[in-house]
Design a protein around this nucleic acid. Structure first.
Lengths: 339, 339
DNA sequence: GTGAAAGCGCTAACAA
DNA sequence: TTGTTAGCGCTTTCAC
């Protein structure tokens, strides 16, 4: 059976005003500025609006106020579980503040990111950019128009929230060192990823300080497939390395799967460490040792910074480094057991 | 070091017009209706606009035209990998048509769904509701204002795209029947889920036709945690059942994990079938037998229907059932091996 | 081909 | 407390 969808003509403020026998401004106030009309009119107007099923046109509302009460969140890969908590936390915080969260997937492509940001630019009040790859220049330009908060990326003049990679790296290296590992391999993420640079440098620094050898392989795509390649490279690489430190969990999980297929045992033959603590990490075989953050809280925090940027655009833009904790599970084990 | 973000005053059409020495209407045309101005003015205006780094205010643009060129996609659970392909496919199709995709997570809560839809309602040109939980009434109401396409829910008068659950159920039952299973347990999803109702009924119907006993457990949340509960219930339930058919993959994966912890072997002790073929399904231990769909294509198709609804609001709203194929992997095995 | 002007639906002075 | 009115920045007739 075929039906045609009913096409409704929207009810406007004028319609309500006419029906209620008052001026448009009164309706406007009754609906969004309740204290400024008498209770009597307020209730009357509201009843009429309700009866007519009036819905404010948000675009028209936004034109004079300059705000659609929407906040944007642009992530490079919405399929990366890492971002889930971020999205959920940001969503909750945005809604609590009366904003609608708009999500965009930039697929990590700087051009898409810029396009998305520009299209959204005048529609959202502000946004969060999880942008590992965009140029400083382009990011700064976006920041000039709307309040922007960068996630896992630092740029003077822009607000940002970053993981304390230095501390996380220290925990990884200490843990591995305590297990007797003397040679590590770092499996790098995308070459132009800011987060990869920071993590890489931090691991290298702490390894050096601890007298541990570190070699690097990559860059690899921060995905399951990237992990496959990384595992192959690692298998063909440094035979002395007893532990692999992956740029992120997706990469680490891909590595785990590939190593298993190649008959290389984790953690018996080699230890593997990830970064992010995606939900799956704990459910893998073996459960992955990885760096954990409270992403839901993180998402909320980031949104708060956006809101601050909205309300006090000229306040300082200090960067907030967030603590992360190594979650030790079964993918790492004593190096002495390797032989 | 503290910096203050630069606060830029937006350049308007008027500014450009003044700078270019023409009327605003001419600038407007030069930019969005190129054929209606002389080449000379067009180039001149464009050069000036470029120099001033003019960006049209999309809200102001949208008020007279009634369109922000945005399309919405509301999913019940953005962390469900099942939706990834959907999102990506929809994104691609939306962008190809010159629209920006706006994503919303309703967390499967009808109230959130309605709120989200209403807030988005007058901002987006049209939207997709994936596995909506709202009442027929509320959905129909949403559909009256903007073109809406339902995914995995049928409602006369609204456009929709659904999986061919009947055929999928037939494939599951045939497969299990051929393996010698005579007693199945269906692990149900949320009670108010339309998709669950359809899948449940289809499985029941085909089981009956095949002379196979079917019992049901649930409802369970369609999540990993729901799977934990389902596994417990199944372990305590029908001792004759040799196979478990889960409402979706997330549930099935949760079941797999819990059964493993309880020492119940899959597929040795019991077979498990999922629904969706999320990316992880193939990587699990054991790899999950499940129903597969091409979600990226699906996402694109759905968006196309939205676009049709936009362009021909009065065209028919027939529902499109999409084929699905059982992907046989290692979580199912002959029932004779169970004893 | 170009300009003037009337809205789009709403908010927010300002008046009454 | 309520009404009148001038915009918000843009598109789009309608004249010229």
């Amino acid at each position: 059976m075929d039906h045609s969808p009913p096409t409704t003509v929207p009810v406007t403020l004028h319609d309500v005003a006419r029906a209620a026998g008052v001026a448009v401004s009164t309706v406007s106030r009754a609906l969004s500025n309740p204290d400024r009309v008498s209770e009597r009119t307020r209730e009357h107007v509201r009843a009429v609006a309700e009866r007519m099923d009036y819905r404010p046109n948000r675009i028209a509302q936004a034109l004079p106020t300059g705000s659609m009460r929407m906040l944007g969140l642009l992530v490079p890969d919405i399929t990366n579980p890492h971002h889930f908590g971020l999205v959920r936390g940001a969503e909750a915080q945005a809604r609590a503040a009366g904003y609608t969260l708009v999500l965009g997937d930039t697929q990590g492509v700087p051009e898409l990111e810029a396009e998305h940001a520009h299209r959204l630019g005048s529609a959202v009040d502000g946004f969060v950019l999880a942008s590992p790859r965009g140029t400083d220049e382009s990011l700064r330009q976006l920041g000039g128009r709307r309040p922007v908060v960068l996630y896992n990326r630092e740029l003077p003049g822009l607000r940002s929230v970053v993981t304390d990679a230095g501390d996380a790296a220290r925990q990884i290296v200490d843990h591995l060192g305590a297990l007797g590992h003397r040679a590590l391999t770092y499996l790098a993420g995308p070459a132009d990823s800011w987060a990869d640079g920071v993590r890489h440098r931090a691991v290298a620094e702490h390894a050096r300080a601890a007298g541990i050898t570190l070699r690097s392989l990559g860059p690899f795509a921060p995905t399951l497939d990237g992990g496959t390649a990384a595992a192959e490279a690692a298998a063909a690489g440094d035979p002395d390395a007893t532990a692999l430190v992956a740029f992120n969990d997706l990469l680490a999980i891909g590595v785990l799967r590939r190593l298993e297929r190649r008959g290389i045992r984790v953690p018996d033959d080699v230890s593997v460490v990830g970064f992010d603590d995606v939900p799956e990490a704990a459910y893998l075989y073996p459960p992955l040792t990885t760096v954990r953050q409270d992403f839901a809280a993180l998402g909320g925090l980031i949104m708060q910074k956006v809101l601050i940027g909205l309300e006090e655009p000229d306040s300082a833009t200090e960067t907030m480094p967030l603590p992360a904790t190594l979650q030790v599970r079964q993918s790492t084990r004593s190096a002495t057991a390797h032989e």
